[in-house]
Simulated scan of single mutants.
Amino acid sequence: MSLFWRIFLLNAAVLFAATALLLLGPVTVSTPVLLTEAMIMAAGLVAMLIANAALLRIGLGPLQRLTRAMTTTDLLRPGPRPAVSGHGEIAELIRTFNTMLDRLEAERAASSALALSAQEAERRRIAQELHDEIGQTLTAVLLELRRVADRAPEPLRDDLLQVQETTRDSLDEIRRIARRLRPGVLEELGLISALKALANETTTHTELAVRRSFDSDLPELDQEVELVLYRVAQEGLTNIIRHARARQVGVALHHGALGLELLVRDDGRGIGTAPEGAGIRGMRERALLIGAEVSVGDAPGGGTEVRLHVPAAHIGPGTHLTNGSHTLS
């Protein structure tokens, strides 16, 4: 039965019952209306309104639950689908909404995989050009400066040596940027070594003290899982450096029966009610590609905590974790 006819028949039943009571019952209305009769009519009207409201509440309840689901749905935080309840068009509407969510999440995952794959490829290309082109050019400049400085007179030699040091610092900075764009240590030595190098680099170039805690018995991980874990840790440390005003930060990676858990926690000012920026949303996008979940919030005792949980079913070697034919490289 359609929603229109259900509501119409419910109201018709209430009105029919009220009319039958007036026609067949002992109740009469005088002119002018007596106080007792007015009270009886008022009580009957209230009873009809209550019955009508209760019937409409039961009939439209599933629509209210669907409305709440529509207003709270976030494609970056998949949750349970609204339960299909009610009859007729209401049940069909809920089923259609759930189907739409499935399609939107699949399309979002495919487009995110393409975008992140293109991003990683572009990072690799830029890092390669920085290393091969600019790095080699600055190396040649350093050698030429050294040759000129060896033959320059004493007053000019000090200036050339200063320029040489500045050029060497610039070359080191370019190499550091290239390593951040394309973590070669991740491909060559694995995730733990890459996280250690990231922590050491953070300590060297900032005033942060980084505490590390990594399990030594990690299972063999898929390359996509390792890359997501590394990028989330990298983004977490970058946000701490930029916004947290922290003095200490902890980076931990542990393996348990439920899967892997990466934790980045600082002692800074906390996230509070600040809206999520592009960095956090990027972490959520990456996590969804491997079936993981990212939570960002205030840490116990102050500061901010970034937690990435990778279920055990998604960490096996050789598991294809991205959607469709798109892979994150």
Rank of each mutant, 00 (worst) to 15 (best):
residue 5 W to C: 05
residue 16 F to G: 09
residue 18 A to Y: 07
residue 23 L to S: 02
residue 25 G to D: 01
residue 27 V to D: 03
residue 28 T to Q: 14
residue 30 S to H: 13
residue 30 S to I: 03
residue 34 L to H: 14
residue 34 L to N: 13
residue 38 A to T: 10
residue 40 I to P: 08
residue 46 V to N: 00
residue 49 L to D: 01
residue 52 N to V: 01
residue 53 A to I: 02
residue 55 L to C: 01
residue 70 M to V: 00
residue 71 T to A: 12
residue 81 R to E: 09
residue 85 S to V: 01
residue 90 I to W: 03
residue 90 I to P: 02
residue 102 D to Q: 08
residue 108 R to I: 00
residue 109 A to S: 14
residue 115 A to C: 06
residue 117 S to D: 10
residue 119 Q to R: 13
residue 128 Q to K: 11
residue 138 L to S: 12
residue 160 L to W: 08
residue 170 S to F: 12
residue 174 I to E: 08
residue 178 A to D: 09
residue 178 A to I: 08
residue 179 R to F: 02
residue 182 R to E: 14
residue 183 P to Q: 02
residue 185 V to A: 11
residue 190 G to I: 07
residue 191 L to I: 04
residue 194 A to T: 10
residue 195 L to M: 07
residue 196 K to V: 12
residue 200 N to K: 03
residue 207 E to R: 11
residue 210 V to S: 07
residue 224 E to G: 11
residue 225 V to N: 03
residue 229 L to I: 14
residue 234 Q to T: 08
residue 238 T to A: 13
residue 238 T to K: 12
residue 241 I to L: 06
residue 243 H to Y: 15
residue 244 A to I: 11
residue 246 A to S: 08
residue 249 V to Y: 04
residue 255 H to P: 00
residue 256 G to C: 10
residue 257 A to S: 12
residue 269 R to M: 13
residue 272 G to D: 15
residue 273 T to N: 12
residue 274 A to V: 10
residue 275 P to W: 02
residue 279 G to T: 10
residue 281 R to V: 04
residue 287 A to W: 00
residue 297 G to S: 06
residue 302 G to Y: 09
residue 307 R to M: 07
residue 308 L to K: 05
residue 314 H to Q: 13
residue 316 G to F: 08
residue 320 H to W: 10
residue 322 T to H: 13
residue 325 S to E: 13
residue 329 S to R: 14
